[in-house]
Design a protein around this nucleic acid. Structure first.
Length: 564
DNA sequence: AAGGGGTCCAACCGCTGGTCT
DNA sequence: TAGACCAGCGGTTGGACCCCT
């Protein structure tokens, strides 16, 4: 997660003027730290939560000595340290679900997050805001044609976006598709409109989606994968498959219903928005590839590992797994090597049966890790940054041919496979291209043949997208792989650097540089205190053997003393 | 190579609602 | 009942990174 380096360099700027980053604020005499969290702070917080459970966040600061306000602790825990967090780019299914949820709930991020297991409201919010900005700039509607926002929960932001949508529909209904009108930035009326929308949901797309009057959803863990396997990705270019709409959850006076569009050909299986073609003038850029592991600590799950889960129990919604095998370093590809999430720390985590780091070796490893990276914000600890994959070959700069469309759609599909979420944008473009190419002949939508071609192309790329997007991008969750278990999360926290990794000498430098070359620019002036806190948290063993922790490839986590 | 724009995301702030005293 | 406290939510900010020009 490249952006994890954000706010680096600010953390130590005391009184730098910015409210964020490094400033320290007094609260009742205590000095509260702001800015990026360090791994040491994370460890303290995790340990505290492990001992005392969630809640009572203000007590964290009081009892743990963590110089963070309760709110900050809660946020850190909720967004980064909490078990079972799913990091990385949103899957197409998740993106689709976000659309649907936003259509229903508006900017109720927490509510949306509740239906997206492993996702935080902050993530969703960021995603949505980015999407809003992007689509505003591109003059695209926020929602696919088959998702109509509900008026039930309109926040100001949503009001704005819905108003845009409405205006766009109005515009679309008044203009012909071939009108080469330059898309101006959508106006955002300040007076909220009070339209009544209705929502259409593809029940078969998201059986877990509570909107539709369908049977109760399957467990979330099943949900996503099943979607990947059984569900056509829902997007606008899908007339070749039947679209099953549930009944409208809000039936009163839909302000703009695709089926009521002035374009009488609009059906649920056809385009309902007709975007003027600025599209080519401002081609959509592929999102840059980013490391999608994203966990603030360097240990997101490694799908490539051969780790198997032998025991999986649920305790307070925390999955507890015990890895039984670990891919040796030598078997890892070069791209896997930096992913130290391959290393499983053989401890279990349970609120009911908390464990302590009980040996000096464990503590030493922990401290070694921190000593290497203690001055980094924990979010920067991932050693697997920045392996930019070769960019997608740009779409051939040819005329607006079907090939172009297919290329774009295919690329979109490939990108979609990476969870970049531009598929709809690209499909919109493809659609607009088709419109501009075919003019009124096809009225406002691709002919069935073309659409099927596009869709087939999409499906083709969908199937191969995992290969296409693989360089530098960690694949999504592997089916059946339970990620983000508590155990893994704890291992993430407690094993910033695996003992089996040769530690480059420069990791110890005070510059905060890590192997990925990124400069944290962040120093934790309180790191000494933090480490004392950590040390105070964990009882020390009697002996110390520092040679254990940094030998090369000779020490597997499996060989470590068990915890508990 | 440098600058600008876009994107991402962590973390802040202010506000709100619930609970407790 | 009022005030204090707390947890949570949504909006916003700001820095790093990436791509394009």
């Amino acid at each position: 997660m490249a952006a994890n380096n954000s706010t680096g360099g600010v953390a130590t700027s005391e009184g730098g003027g910015s409210n964020t980053g490094g400033a320290e604020s007094g609260l009742g005499g205590a000095t509260l730290k702001k800015g990026p969290w360090t791994a040491a702070e994370d460890a303290i917080l995790v340990e505290y939560v492990r001992k005392h459970g969630e809640g009572n966040w203000n007590a964290v600061q009081r009892n743990s000595g963590l110089a963070r306000c309760g709110k900050s602790c809660r946020l850190r825990w909720a967004n980064h340290l909490r078990p079972n967090l799913k990091k990385g780019a949103f899957t197409p299914e998740e993106e689709r679900l976000i659309l649907e949820l936003h259509a229903k709930y508006g900017n109720k991020w927490a509510r949306m997050a509740a239906q997206l297991p492993g996702r935080t409201d902050n993530e969703i919010k960021n995603y949505w805001n980015t999407r809003v900005k992007r689509r505003q700039r591109q003059g695209l509607p926020l929602y696919p044609h088959d998702i109509q926002p509900s008026s039930q929960t309109q926040s100001p932001n949503q009001t704005q976006t819905q108003t845009q949508l409405q205006l766009q529909h109005q515009y679309q209904s008044q203009s012909t598709p071939t009108t080469p009108t330059t898309p101006t930035a959508p106006t955002t009326p300040t007076t909220p409109t009070t339209p009544t929308f209705h929502f259409q949901s593809h029940a078969h797309h998201h059986p877990s989606f509570s909107l539709s009057p369908t049977p109760p959803p399957p467990p979330p863990s099943h949900h996503q994968h099943q979607h990947q396997q059984h569900q056509h990705h829902s997007f606008s270019l899908s007339p070749s498959k039947p679209q099953h709409f549930t009944t409208n959850t809000s039936t009163s006076l839909p302000l703009f219903d695709p089926t009521n569009n002035s374009n009488t050909n609009t059906t649920p299986s056809s385009f309902t928005f007709h975007r003027p073609p600025p599209i080519l003038g401002a081609p959509i850029r592929f999102k840059r590839y980013r490391e999608t592991t994203g966990f603030s600590l360097p240990l997101s799950p490694a799908p490539h590992t051969t780790t198997t889960t032998t025991t999986t129990t649920t305790n307070n919604n925390n999955m507890i797994t015990s890895p039984t095998s670990i891919t040796p370093l030598g078997q890892l590809s070069s791209t896997q090597l930096p992913d130290i999430s391959c290393f499983k720390f053989p401890l279990t985590y349970s609120h009911s049966a908390p464990q302590l780091i009980s040996t000096q070796l464990e503590l030493d490893q922990m401290m070694s890790a921190y000593s290497m990276k203690q001055e980094l914000p924990s979010s920067q600890l991932s050693p697997q940054h920045h392996h930019p994959p070769p960019p997608h070959p740009p779409p051939p700069a040819t005329t607006m041919s079907e090939i172009t469309i297919d290329t774009k759609v295919s690329a979109a599909a490939a990108n979609r496979g990476c969870g970049n979420g531009l598929l709809e944008d690209l499909l919109d473009e493809a659609h607009a291209l088709a419109i501009s190419n075919q003019g009124l002949r096809t009225q406002s939508f691709l002919g069935v043949k073309e659409e099927k071609r596009v869709f087939d192309g999409f499906k083709h790329w969908e199937g191969s997208s995992t290969i296409d997007c693989s360089p530098g991008v960690k694949p999504k969750e592997e089916p059946g792989v339970q990620i983000n278990t508590m155990q893994e999360d704890l291992s993430k926290l407690l094993n910033v650097i695996p003992s089996t990794m040769q530690i480059p000498s420069d990791w110890y430098s005070d510059s905060g540089e890590v192997s990925n070359g990124q400069s944290s620019g962040v120093t934790d002036e309180n790191i000494g205190i933090d480490m004392q806190h950590i040390a105070s948290l964990f009882p020390l063993g009697a002996t110390t053997d520092h040679s254990h922790s940094r030998t090369t490839g000779s020490c597997s986590w499996d060989n470590l003393p068990g915890i508990c």
